[in-house]
């Protein structure tokens, strides 16, 4: 069981304090959404949680060990990160790329075995990429490359999954599939953290949310309670409205004509 605890975390970038005194416990079974405007520090926070960037202050612990002191391989066996963009300057096949997720589990001279191949094929099938194993990554569409990046994360089989805007480039069907898949993984006992841009997806698929206001302030809690018209209007600097249909709640941005006039929460 992998647990990530964050105590008094501060993150500064470009001379700005993006978050201050952040306290979080990411526990098995939880599915988190991180919401915030552009440049509010969502990506930097995710990279910091993955140990790829140093924190300005505070400590992050992975199963009670300070993250900064753990070997990268040890971290990668437990914690996986889906980057916002993938970068493939050299021609590689879909199979080779997905197989790279097994890297932290293989010894230096160890070759990939049958089990690794089984895991990779399962992950490719889960992302509807079966049959494309020999395709060169550069020939894939944007959405297919995104699905390949997610398949690589699945191949890594981490207990804790950090996903930076996982829905980028995905069509509506694959967006729903991904959200569904991540919620299922969390219910099966893994920890999922997703940077999302749609509060409705957070409300529907995640049980907890972290709001980053971009000026050091943050709020976290259970989605049902945390996500309100007031907070979201403030978060996105844009008036929001709430639609109710039966049990379902739907946040929609107010008309553009009224936007930009006020930064204060609208009251609907």
């Amino acid at each position: 069981m992998t647990r990530l605890t964050v105590e008094g975390l501060a993150i500064q970038a470009g001379g700005r304090t993006l978050c201050q005194g952040l306290e979080l416990t990411l526990a098995p079974g939880q599915c988190w959404a991180i919401l915030g405007g552009n440049g509010s520090g969502k990506t930097i926070l995710l990279h910091t949680l993955a140990g790829l960037l140093p924190a300005t202050a505070g400590t992050i612990r992975l199963d009670d060990h300070p993250l900064a002191a753990l070997p990268r391989r040890h971290i990668a066996q437990r914690l996986g990160l889906l980057l916002q963009e993938s970068h493939d300057p050299f021609p590689t096949s879909v199979l080779e790329t997905a197989m790279s997720g097994r890297h932290p589990h293989l010894g230096r001279w160890q070759q990939e075995g049958d089990e690794d191949h089984a895991i990779v094929h399962q992950a490719l099938a889960a992302m509807a990429l079966s049959g494309m194993e020999q395709r060169v990554v550069q020939t894939l569409s944007g959405g297919e490359r995104r699905r390949l990046a997610i398949a690589t994360l699945l191949t890594q089989t981490p207990q804790l999954l950090l996903l930076d805007e996982p829905l980028n480039h995905l069509d509506l069907h694959h967006q729903q599939q991904l959200l569904h898949q991540q919620r299922r993984l969390a219910r099966e006992g893994r920890t999922v953290v997703m940077v999302l841009h749609d509060p409705n997806q957070a409300l529907r698929y995640c049980d907890r949310a972290l709001l980053l206001y971009g000026d050091g302030r943050w709020e976290s809690g259970v989605c049902e309670e945390l996500l309100t018209v007031e907070r979201l209007s403030h978060l996105y600097h844009h008036p929001m409205r709430l639609l109710r249909q039966g049990d379902e709640r739907l946040f929609i941005p107010a008309d553009e004509g009224t936007a930009g006039q006020t930064h204060s929460p609208s009251s609907h």
């Binding site: 993955a50 300057p89 590689t92």
Partner: peptide, 15 residues
């Protein structure tokens, strides 16, 4: 193989 795909990706996969 991993570093060829960028230092962030390599770091995330344990390099």
């Amino acid at each position: 193989n991993l570093l060829a795909r960028g230092e962030l990706q390599a770091g995330a996969l344990g390099v």
